[in-house]
């Protein structure tokens, strides 16, 4: 196995694993939709880094983390619903990108290009993924409790504001990483699909996140290995495999739910 393939596989496994793990929390909070606008906010950053020849992450992360902080801040100050705020941020991201992005060079930003990932970028992707996994593990039960009832969470000493902030930062980090793997357009799929697949067939919390991580990571390994066989870009193949897992989970859940006759 050549070194580039190892770097691609390692970074794919960490990015898709952390995205799927966070995705289970986002789905239970009905927040997977937030990932989409945030991922589009990576476009202006990616455009700048392509224009001026920086590493992709130096352009992407400041924009997406800045966007997350802005959503959190505006959410507190304006009391506007998160969906509305992210839609505004989304429009700002795409609008700005279309003004400055050289369209002929946009492919890398739009659909990702993990086959060219460098050693330094792989290292950064692994470190950021581990940070997200630690954040999510710390937040998991607390956010689940907030999902059930925010007042009970507050009474039990959970600082819901700080947790919302940490949560949005985690989403921003995963979205930034997702740009490498699948590009700006379909990053949300990395968080939404494995969680949806798992929710269809899980009845406990532990199986929920385990199945999500398994299908997320399996899809990305599959994508990295299968895409070159068809000279296809890796990102879209990963998403297609994820969708196949999701379809299978729908069928399995229907079989489980259908009462046996006789």
């Amino acid at each position: 196995m050549n070194n580039q393939l190892i770097l691609t596989l390692v970074s794919s496994i960490f990015i898709s694993g952390s995205a799927a793990y966070l995705g289970t929390l986002m789905l239970s909070r009905k927040m997977t939709i937030v990932a989409d606008p945030l991922s589009h906010l990576t476009l202006p950053g990616a455009a700048l880094s392509i224009l001026y020849g920086f590493e992709l992450f130096t352009g992407v992360f400041p924009f997406v983390i800045g966007g997350a902080i802005l959503i959190w801040f505006l959410g507190r100050k304006t009391k506007l619903p998160m969906e509305n705020l992210t839609a505004i941020i989304f429009a700002a991201g795409v609008g700005t990108a279309l003004l400055i992005l050289p369209i002929d060079k946009a492919e890398e930003a739009l659909v990702g290009n993990i086959t060219n990932i460098s050693f330094a970028e792989t290292l950064i992707a692994v470190l950021i993924s581990i940070t997200v996994i630690v954040f999510v593990a710390f937040m998991y039960n607390k956010i689940m409790l907030m999902n059930i009832n925010e007042d009970i969470a507050k009474i039990r000493g959970i600082n819901t504001n700080s947790l919302d902030f940490l949560y949005l930062i985690s989403i921003a980090l995963v979205v930034g990483l997702g740009v490498y793997l699948v590009g700006s357009i379909i990053t949300a799929a990395l968080v939404a699909i494995p969680a949806g697949t798992s929710k269809n067939i899980s009845k406990s919390v532990s199986s929920y996140w385990r199945v999500a991580i398994f299908t997320g990571v399996a899809s990305s390994i599959g994508g990295v290995l299968i895409a070159p066989l068809f000279s296809a870009p890796i990102g879209p193949v990963i998403i297609v495999i994820n969708v196949i897992f999701f379809t299978m989970s729908v069928i399995v859940s229907e079989i489980i739910r259908t009462p046996r006759k006789g």
């Binding site: 239970s28 039960n141 059930i148 406990s204 929920y208």
Partner: peptide
């Protein structure tokens, strides 16, 4: 909307 068993529910707190 949450895949929670009763055991999970207690372990949240």
């Amino acid at each position: 909307e949450l895949p929670l068993t009763i055991r999970d529910f207690f372990n949240l707190s």
